[in-house]
């Protein structure tokens, strides 16, 4: 039997690691995190039944964005702007070359 991949998508692993790192470096209390994440899952689960895959990590990311915005570590405006910068970087990078943000 082939083992299931630990993470289905690279970004699932990234958002997981980011959260664990913030906890390990003392910036995020795990009980608070679990409570907030649970609340997001509950909210999302009202409209449809969550399958525990992509929608699970979508709820995870939304929770993390909320926590970081509240703490002032990354405001929604900053996050949106940086997301746009990454999108442009991907669109402007020729295929096969490493994608880098322009400073």
């Amino acid at each position: 039997m082939k083992p299931e991949p630990v993470f289905d998508q690279p970004w699932h692993a990234q958002v997981f690691a980011l959260t664990v790192h913030l906890n390990e470096s003392g910036r995020l209390d795990w009980s608070d995190w679990a409570a907030r994440f649970g609340a997001t899952l509950k909210k999302h689960g009202v409209a449809k039944e969550l399958n525990g895959g992509e929608d699970y990590f979508a709820a995870w990311l939304e929770t993390l964005e909320g926590v970081l915005a509240e703490e002032g570590a990354a405001s929604p405006e900053e996050a949106l702007e940086m997301r746009g910068a990454w999108e442009r970087a991907y669109l402007e990078t020729p295929h096969g070359e490493p994608v880098q943000l322009r400073s």
Binding site: L64, E65, L68, A79, M82, R83, E87, L101
Partner: peptide
């Protein structure tokens, strides 16, 4: 979502 995660990583 992958772009949003990258954005958070870069900012932090």
């Amino acid at each position: 979502p992958a772009l949003r995660v990258k954005a958070l990583e870069t900012i932090l």
